[in-house]
Design a protein around this nucleic acid. Sequence first.
DNA 1: GACATGACCCGCG
DNA 2: CCGCGGGCCATGT
Length: 108
Amino acid sequence: MNPNVTPFRQRVFDACSRVPKGQVTTYKLLAEEIDCGSSQAIGQALKHNPFAPQVPCHRVIATNRTLHGFHGETSGPQLDRKRQLLEGEGVAFDEQGRVVRDCLFTFK
DNA sequence: GACATGACCCGCG
DNA sequence: CCGCGGGCCATGT
């Protein structure tokens, strides 16, 4: 099977692409934008991410502003790489490893 | 069509 | 502060 892209996923990737460089959004905000009551479904789509690295899925973080996962790994070298990527785009992190609010993009 | 999984979130004790 | 349970949605087997 090869249902890499479903209408739902397409919305997710589209919204993800809207996130400007240097800013990040959360699963929940993304969910609200595409009218989805579950942020978990968002993670599913991004995890598959057939459009990577075209789609900046690394700009999507958890609601508590923590990097929850990347490339299918909830922790490990991949997750560390995600942080480096964001830093390279101008996203700042605090002592607790969370993204600063100023970098948060709320789909305005 | 039912069952199981997941890069989630929130409220409670 | 930490752990547990429930809810929610899309996907794949």
